[in-house]
Computed example of a mutant assay.
Amino acid sequence: MAERQVPTIFSPARRMAARRRADPATASYVLDDMVDEVIERLAFIRHEPGNALIIGDRTGRLAQVLPGARSVDPADGFDEERPFPAGGHDFIASLGTLDTVNDLPGALVHLREALAPGGLMIASFVGAGSLERLRAIMHAADGERPAPRLHPMVDIRSGAQLLQRAGFADPVVDGHSLPVRYSSLGRLVGDLRALGLSNVLAEPGPPLGKAALTRARAKFDELSDSEGKLLERFEIITLSGRRR
């Protein structure tokens, strides 16, 4: 049987660099939202992990409510596309990292394999429908020669199919919107860097020139409200399932 070929959409080196530049002290509202979601779900199902693995929580908040949990991060070299070095976890949380792996089905399989039987996985990431106004701004900036600026994203339907494909029991997929208002294009771009959500495509577009940047700012102003604020939305998708 031929080995499955995984397309290289994202650059692992750019991904690691983006996460190393991320600064929760500057902006962490997307990650905070994901952490709150995990904490609420654990409380609702009354799941009290004794051997938890936390992936990608740069705020450290989730580790504070899960004593003894092990925290790892792709920024430190943890690779979700390879078999995990340790297993038997009764709970794994993956926060804001799965949206930029090249082999998402494989990463989900590795998550499932790292769980003990009956163990629970919750994974949250920014999904399809996010940053629609920024996409419009970048399209206006590039004009007739659009360049890759924002990567393709997973939607809820695809998330459900991926969980089933990865062999999770009791798969659940849902999503919600996180609205944020920005006072300038620079603030929006700066927050994306601080959130670790900047462009990590393997073949990113060229930097915006002076004329393109002018067009981008003009489009930002056009889409802004009467107070000069742009309302942008992050669509947060959450996948959960158990190992049989």
Rank of each mutant, 00 (worst) to 15 (best):
A107K: 04
S177A: 15
P85K: 04
I122H: 03
L42Y: 09
R215H: 05
V173T: 10
R215P: 05
I122D: 02
P105L: 12
K229P: 00
A107V: 03
L111W: 00
L162I: 08
D191M: 13
L239E: 02
S94M: 11
P179L: 06
L195R: 08
F10R: 07
Q64A: 15
F168K: 06
A114V: 07
D90Y: 07
E132F: 11
S198D: 15
G186Y: 09
G241W: 08
L185Q: 07
E40K: 15
D103W: 14
A27E: 03
F220S: 00
N102L: 06
G205W: 14
H151G: 02
G228L: 10
G228A: 10
A52E: 00
D142F: 11
R112V: 01
S183L: 09
G143P: 01
G77D: 12
L150E: 04
V200Q: 01
L162T: 06
A52P: 01
R46V: 01
E113S: 08
V154A: 00
R4M: 08
R243C: 10
A202E: 11
L98V: 11
E80R: 06
L185F: 12
V154L: 07
Q164H: 14
E3Y: 07
P148H: 07
I122N: 03
K219T: 02
P206G: 09
L163S: 00
P85Y: 05
M121F: 04
G167Y: 12
A128F: 14
I237D: 00
Q64W: 07
A2P: 15
I39D: 09
R149V: 04
A169W: 08
R145N: 14
L120C: 06
E144K: 09
A93W: 09
L120I: 04
D57G: 06
L163M: 06
E40C: 13
Q64T: 14
P148N: 06
D32M: 15
L42D: 09
Y182G: 05
N51G: 09
S240V: 00
D170H: 03
V38D: 02
Q164T: 14
L185P: 09
L192A: 10
I92S: 08
P85T: 08
H176W: 11
P83W: 05
A218M: 02
T97R: 14
R61G: 14
D36Y: 05
S177I: 13
A160D: 05
R41H: 13
P74M: 08
H47V: 00
